[in-house]
Amino acid sequence: MAKINEELLDHLFHLAKIEKEHNPQRRQKLLNDLEKILNYFNQLQEVETQEVEPMTGGTFLANVFRKDEEKIFSPQEKEEAKERSLAQFSSREERFLKTPPVFD
C-alpha cells in the first residue's frame, strides 16, 4: 500500500495551498501520523466490494433544480447582505475588490 514520502508530502502541501512544513520535528511527526492513519485504512482492503455500487453522497434523491432567481431577501436585506459580504473582503477600492497581482 501507499506510503507518503517526503516528496509526496511536499506535493500534497502544494495541492493544499499551504506552506511546506520546514521544522524537521514537526515534519517527521506529520509523516508518522499520516503513515499510522494510512496503515489503519488498509483494513478496508479485506472487504469484498467487487459488486458494490459506491454511495456517492448523503442523499438518495435526484438533484432538484430551481430557477436561478433571487428570492426571500427584501431590498433592504439585500443591500445589507451585500454590504456585509463586501465588508469582509481583504482590500477594497471604491466598488472594486483588490487582490494581490495574479501574474508577477
Binding site: L9, L30, L34, L44, V52, M55
Partner: peptide, 26 residues
C-alpha cells in the same frame, strides 16, 4: 486537508476514496 488531497489524487483514488464509498454502501 493533506489527507483529503492524498485520497483524491490520481493513483490513490481507487484504493482509498472509491473503496470507502463502496464500504459506505455496505
Amino acid at each position: 486537508i493533506l489527507l483529503g488531497n492524498f485520497v483524491l489524487s490520481s493513483g490513490y483514488y481507487d484504493a482509498y476514496y472509491a473503496k470507502a464509498q463502496k464500504v459506505r454502501r455496505l
